[in-house]
Write a protein that binds this DNA or RNA. Structure first.
Lengths: 343, 343
DNA sequence: CTGAAAGCGCTAACAT
DNA sequence: ATGTTAGCGCTTTCAG
């Protein structure tokens, strides 16, 4: 049975040597005689010694801990990104402190404050839906605490970030709808202070131009991206005198809500109306019909963000901020491909 | 602009008082004159002082950090439990260090070792699928480091745990299948070293007895709970000379795999074969047909586990281990209710 | 009412 | 080759 937590002092006492000798032996300092070093290591192993990270941290002002702030903990998108962060962090000897803003600006500020107070070596943050004000990042930036944003980002000229090619993705999926025969393509957009919402909206408009379609404001609704709000705006779209023949939801959660409402109105997807989303959630494949969407390399986004952060943490000088843009993949499923009638 | 991290020393220097005076003032020690205390607090606030948790931790041997080990980070089940843990932890001033065993025993041992090395004040653990050997918990238990297991548990006589009434849940859902008209109810079971798998299997057998059905080994398959393995055993069940008219999958992930295979074989759920799962994943409602399942109070499981752990952390004496059993809810959806033909 | 000093576990500069 | 000392930031006696 091992004692609670063994310290260098314990080992030193056991062997009647000084603490610093033990310290040196354990880190293979050349000055220590091989025999003594061996003896010390044997005891350390037997007693299951592991250095106290608090003491080490206090000394060199490093906690070897990275803080993460995500809008929620439960969707596949964020949890798989966290998984990617965790992997790279662990490989580099860091722990991660995960906090959730629950999509609230106030909670996000709270999270940042807490992480700062707990002296994390750096932070990885995805903005909450509500975040349209960025002063709570001042303390982090001004104190040159390593920081990386991902997906929903801000201050990109000062802070490194990992995002996807939202504009291209939206353009591509809208083009796909056109190629599938859609003429009146609606878009359910998100809050325009979010880069992802703004860029996807732009991509949508670009695709309209690509195909010689006119931008029609009546076909664009803005949602706060909740299921409830999305249901409301979907009803509005469906009750238009001349309803859309395709709907592009800003993300899959929105698309699922749209799907529910369309089904409720006994319309057929894709024959009456096509439907696509963005951000391929796991369940896109198991809904009925399977949802055409744009796959994000979520795990890799997490890995990349963590890599950028670790780099900043070990750098002597503050590196220039970089913007990493990850590629997405359009995945065509049944929700956007009209079924052939009777073979 | 604030300096990187303000210490008591900085404040003391500014006001020409001693460090201990500042320390006392900040924690409202009665010995300090109100005026001085005020002055000190003003400076502390202005400079955004927050005590260094490393120093504090070093002193009282508490990190105010709880370690969590889960089999994976990405399914709704675990991420919502983590969400519950996070909430209670935060309310009590604790941070959580989340690690994933990725369903591997070896990685689980690694996680435990790392959390131990990082001096967490306590741990919350859910066993990996592979875990059939418990010696890596010895160090935790022997050193009386607070520990709580949840869902997949072991050593329940020594360690507190939070579980659900698996036996009852399985019995209830099997009874439901019988009441829906099933006569040949198959069960896809899990590894029997896991309490959840064993108990659900028992519940299944109890329900058979309840309804005067004979236990038929040919209707029970054991899966490692991956989609791949489940697909294989499903094929075996479906190709039986006399195939089952209902399948009870040990969990929803298994049930989804079964569903895919049944659909592939162009059979109808529930009319040809009924299907139910356990552990209501979010997507149970959006698959087609919606899956009958047993809802777990995931968020509450996390909260309860965290509460038990925090209790142990602040207790002077090691409290008696308790087993909290949470209630589940059977949620009947279309996958287990035959459609009426033509009204 | 306030200050000085010791100590939590560790490292690194400075002795010996 | 090994020991001593100081100090990271904080709390807590013990002194004044």
């Amino acid at each position: 049975m091992t004692r609670k937590h063994i310290s260098l002092k314990d080992i030193a006492a056991e062997l009647n040597v000084s603490i610093s000798t033990v310290s040196r032996a354990l880190k293979n300092h050349p000055d220590i005689s091989p025999e003594l070093a061996d003896k010390i290591k044997t005891v350390a192993n037997a007693w299951n010694y592991s250095p106290n990270p608090l003491a080490k941290g206090l000394l060199n002002q490093k906690t070897m801990t990275l803080g993460v702030v995500v809008p929620d903990l439960v969707t596949y998108f964020y949890s798989s990104i966290i998984s990617g962060i965790e992997q790279v962090a662990r490989e580099n000897g860091y722990f991660i402190l995960i906090t959730s803003s629950y999509e609230s600006l106030e909670k996000e500020q709270e999270c940042v404050k807490n992480l700062l107070a707990s002296r994390v070596d750096g932070m990885i943050i995805c903005l909450s839906k509500e975040t349209n004000d960025y002063i709570h990042f001042d303390t982090i930036i001004d104190n040159e605490i390593p920081l990386v944003f991902f997906d929903r980002v801000c201050r990109t000229s000062e802070v490194s970030s990992v995002v996807v090619n939202n504009r291209e993705a939206a353009r591509q999926i809208t083009n796909h709808l056109f190629q599938s025969g859609a003429k009146r393509i609606a878009h359910i957009a998100g809050p325009q202070h979010l880069n992802i919402a703004k860029e996807r909206f732009e991509g949508y408009k670009m695709a309209l131009t690509d195909n010689g379609l006119n931008y029609n404001p009546e076909l664009v609704e803005f949602s706060d991206m909740t299921s409830e709000d999305t249901t409301l705006v979907t009803r509005r779209l469906l009750s238009l005198p001349n309803p859309p023949d395709a709907i592009f939801g800003i993300n899959d959660v929105v698309a699922f809500a749209v799907m529910k409402e369309i089904k409720k109105q006994k319309k057929n997807i894709p024959n009456d109306i096509m439907l696509v989303g963005i951000t391929d959630e796991f369940h896109a494949t198991i809904v009925d019909p399977p949802l055409t969407s744009v796959m994000h390399p979520t795990f890799e986004i997490g890995q990349e963000a963590a890599r950028l952060l670790v780099e900043q943490c070990i750098a002597k000088e503050k590196p220039q901020p970089v913007q990493v843009v990850m590629d997405t993949t359009l995945v065509v499923r049944e929700s956007s491909v009209k079924k052939l009638l009777a073979k």
